[in-house]
Amino acid sequence: QPHRKQPSCSTLGENKVVTLLLGAEPEKVCAMPDPALPDSDIKALTTLCDLADRELVLNISWAKNIPGFSSLCLSDQMSLLQSAWMEILVLRVAFRSLPCEDKLVFADDYIMDAEQAKSAGLLELHKAILQLVSRYRSMRLEKEEFVTLKAIALANSDSMHIEDVEAVQGLQDSLHEALLDYECVHHREDPRRAGKLIMTLPLLRQTSAKAVRHFCSIKQDGRVPMHKLFLELLEANV
């Protein structure tokens, strides 16, 4: 009989892993669209790619602060990030957009409605991310849940190149446990809430894959300048 551990609610009501994840959250990034450029699809896409590149640097630093991530071998750390980087970016945009109806908050100074998304050729992606936002809004996703789910998305990225599968499984287990523990204390009224949150991950992956495909085609087009880290990760997903 396998040992089945029930989530044990922490007595203080605060899960240590969740607290560490809250502390690891990156600072806000501003988009700062170039005021010298006239508004165009190229300008919008350039602004988004530049913003994504700067967020990626912060997200790599964030990953290193996830309890247990830095204990993985360097190759597995790279594999997880190469698979999940866009999911992390998309989940961050979705969480920032929760207070806004029908708009995506890429940054405080860069909020995009459907009309602007259409002009930038991003309408399909905009709709897909808004579907995710509406799912999280209807659940009233909390910051503690968001940070834990984001770490789970990274640990559960299904890379085909993992060397130490047990170590990655251990990281998934500890983050899963942290989510169960948090829900056990804060959402006793809904014993299925943790499961409901995990069940949003397929839509996150689907949306992220859409975003990667779209930005790959923009890259091939060659009209939008992209920074090296963003290019490197786009190429990792091809």
Partner: peptide, 20 residues
């Protein structure tokens, strides 16, 4: 790995958070 130089360098960099 050679193809992923920047990711590799950022992960190896011990200072955290990474300077932009």
């Amino acid at each position: 790995k050679e193809k992923h130089k920047i990711l590799h360098r950022l992960l190896q960099n011990s200072s955290s958070p990474v300077d932009l």
